[in-house]
């Protein structure tokens, strides 16, 4: 069971780091920048397309944000599960608490 004990801190750290990834994704302002450029080039053909590509990128980033959140939640839940298994496992082995 030492393996689980050794990996759990990494699992916790990964979940925390994914939370940090999510906040970094929130800081992206690509769509806003592209919309600003569209406004700076009135009458141009690229103006409308700039807004569209900004919207698509914004959608992709929102999707990434959701996936990152879901993965972080899964990691946290896994850590909880492993800790529970680690606590119960010695009881299950031969019906006696095993020495670590």
């Amino acid at each position: 069971m030492t393996g689980i004990r050794a990996d759990l801190p990494r699992l916790d750290a990964a979940a925390a780091q994914l939370g940090e990834v999510a906040s970094r994704l929130d800081g992206l302002s690509t769509a806003h920048a592209l919309a600003g450029l569209a406004g700076a080039l009135p009458g141009s053909a690229c103006g409308l397309v700039l807004e569209r590509v900004g919207a698509e990128i914004s959608c992709a980033i929102r999707l990434a944000r959701g996936a990152v959140d879901a993965t972080a939640a899964a990691l946290t839940a896994s850590a909880v599960g492993y800790r529970a298994a680690d606590h119960l496992a010695p009881v299950r082995v031969g019906g006696r608490r095993a020495e670590a």
Partner: peptide, 28 residues
């Protein structure tokens, strides 16, 4: 009527966003 100077600023912003996004996705 174009404000072409805005484009340079946007290009710079996008380059920074690209680095940040790739870093995020790499970590993910």
């Amino acid at each position: 009527r174009w404000d072409t100077s805005a484009a340079a600023a946007v290009a710079s912003r996008l380059r920074a966003d690209s680095e940040r996004a790739r870093g995020c996705f790499e970590d993910f």
